[in-house]
Amino acid sequence: MWIFRLFFSSMQSPSSISVRCRLFARYAEIVGQDEVTLSLQRDATVAQAVAVLRQSVPDGARLPEQPMVAVNQEHALAGQVLADGDEIALLPPLAGG
């Protein structure tokens, strides 16, 4: 699989990547959708993806600047670099009990 990806990326060498962004609980309510596809620059980081998301969806600015983010179902730090086809998820903390 990775050989194929490597081959594919060296052939295409795309200048932008596409990342699927999923929003949970209150975040989905704020922006009115639970899934957004983001077009990002190559080598964009998690923090940059969040910044693009906050600008590109209605009421996106109401999302926190540094939310908890998972990339491909793994908790990620803000500096992690994204690849084409990655899925990122923004999770709000829940307090209810």
Binding site: A25, L91, P93, L94, A95, G96, G97
Partner: peptide, 10 residues
């Protein structure tokens, strides 16, 4: 840890 809100839980 456990928490809930509306229809979502962790």
């Amino acid at each position: 840890y456990g928490s809930v809100y509306r229809f979502e839980g962790q």
